[in-house]
Amino acid sequence: MPTVNQESVNATLTFAVPAARVFAVLADPTTHAAIDGTGWVQAPADRAPLTEVGQIFRMDMYHSDHPDGDYQVVNKVEVLDPPRAIGWLTGTDQGDGRLEFGGWIWRYDLTPTGPSETEVTLTYDWSAVPQYIRDRGIRFPPFGPEHLTDSLHHLAELAAPASRV
């Protein structure tokens, strides 16, 4: 069940998968559209694995309430502690070489609970969003809390070992 407070929302799920395997899926931008519980992430514009804090990676997005429908976000890796934590800020390319991040972060914390089991907590935190962005009328979070739980279920499916026939 997701937990919402004034500045963040999180959800936790236990996977029957080792933490290193879960982390590897999260560090691969090509899996993010399949993980996304909102359906907004369409495809990675940058496909390189996430390997360092400060790394930039872009995602093609779609949202019916966005002025353009299709748009692109820029993400900056803020947390990278394999296989325990990974997180990124989301923002936009201003078109003149400047990247602007809005102050919200996506973070996954992985806690091994056994040799082949991991508790995964997904947090969306908007506590660093400046007032001028809040004044634009953007609602936080811009999705229902169930989307985090959906994302964790998608991640668990992607990280699960392939079934044998």
Results as ranks from 00 to 15, higher is better:
R134A: 08
Y62M: 03
M59P: 00
D81N: 13
A20L: 12
P49L: 11
D93A: 13
F101T: 09
L122P: 12
P115I: 08
A159P: 00
A33W: 01
R21F: 06
S127R: 11
A43H: 05
A156Q: 14
P49F: 03
P67F: 07
D28E: 11
A19E: 02
P2M: 07
A160P: 03
L158M: 02
A160W: 05
V22E: 00
T113G: 03
T123D: 06
A160T: 11
Q55V: 04
H147G: 12
Y132Q: 13
I56H: 05
V25R: 02
W88Y: 02
T90F: 10
Y108P: 06
P67I: 04
F140W: 15
F23W: 08
E146K: 04
R98G: 11
D125S: 08
A45L: 11
Q55L: 08
M61D: 09
V9N: 02
S8V: 02
N5P: 07
P44Y: 01
V129T: 09
F15S: 06
V73R: 01
P49K: 06
S64M: 10
P82S: 02
G114C: 01
G95S: 03
V53S: 10
V41S: 11
R134F: 04
H154I: 03
G95D: 04
V73L: 07
D68Q: 14
L155K: 06
A16W: 08
Y108E: 00
A159E: 10
Y132K: 11
V25Y: 04
L158R: 05
N75E: 00
S8F: 12
T92S: 14
Q131E: 15
P112M: 05
A11N: 04
R58L: 05
A11E: 10
P115S: 14
V120S: 08
P161N: 12
Y108K: 06
D65N: 13
V129R: 05
R134K: 13
L155Q: 05
R84Y: 02
V73T: 13
D135I: 07
G87L: 03
R84C: 04
G114Q: 10
L152W: 10
V77F: 03
I86A: 07
T38S: 15
G102K: 05
K76Y: 07
I35M: 11
M59H: 06
G103M: 09
Y62S: 05
T113F: 04
D65A: 13
